[in-house]
Write a protein that binds this DNA or RNA. Structure first.
Lengths: 129, 129
DNA sequence: CCCACCTGGATGCGCGTGCATCTAACCATG
DNA sequence: CATGGTTAGATGCACGCGCATCCAGGTGGG
């Protein structure tokens, strides 16, 4: 069957993921003091432009609930988001992005886009490398 | 530009990678006592069907040299591969798969293929989910 | 109203990873 | 043959992740 195709696709995903992840970690970390997960959460916050529940973020970022909890904790410590109890369900926690968070995200966005463009535009090119 | 395309592609890679990785970890771990990295190394060994240098494996698996060194150490402890000094270059270490290693790989292969097929055949399907 | 069950999120823990560094072996040059 | 630079692989270290667990708050049945 096209088992070959499946395996090749998988290897391609592995390769792109590794390269992108590694580059993002370096670039975002060095230039903006953000990890890929931190950036991704900020990105979702900006995209939705409203307070989000932890669980909502869980669905969108591919992270376990515990990991997400810690990411938000780090972001809060860095004053990039603020946490607050959800008044309608006091177990819930909503996360709101701060102005500083928006600024950091805006600053980091071009860097992230550049890395992704590098990888995924070079995709066709890098196959011949 | 097709910045949209690049970002969407990236999210797709993230999603597939997360799902596949998670499933592989569970399935291979539970059924065969192997991590994804361990399996991948065994897979390369079988594919090449000869002793390989650590560095050669490094090029193929998307792992740092240190991570690979530990993976091989784990595999050796499990008697799935054996390490030996390269007589031509005594810094080098060649890795050879053992019979037990081949057996474990053969046993695990269908599991891995099933997971990958699940993810990448469902790819088109899951987009409409 | 009470109690057993469920759910959202936080935390302890172990593990695998990458980075920096170390050691040993190779190699070129004098 | 000695020496400085380079390369292969191993190891110390810090960190982020997932899993299991815990706790507070909600919810339904008696």
């Amino acid at each position: 069957m096209d088992e070959r195709f499946v395996v090749d696709t998988w290897h391609d995903v592995l390769s792109k993921h590794a390269r992108a992840m590694c580059a993002l970690e370096r670039e975002l970390g060095d230039k903006h003091g953000l990890g890929p997960s931190e950036f991704e959460v900020l990105d979702r916050m900006v995209a939705h432009d409203r307070k989000l529940r932890i669980q909502e973020l869980c669905d969108e970022v591919h992270l376990s609930q515990s990991a997400l909890s810690r990411v938000v904790a780090r972001l809060e410590k860095a004053a990039l988001v603020s946490r607050g109890v959800c008044d309608s369900d006091r177990r819930g926690v909503f996360v709101r992005i701060t102005e500083e968070g928006r600024a950091r995200h805006a600053a980091a966005l071009p860097t992230q886009r550049a890395v992704l463009a590098e990888i995924f535009d070079d995709a066709a090119t890098s196959l011949s490398t």
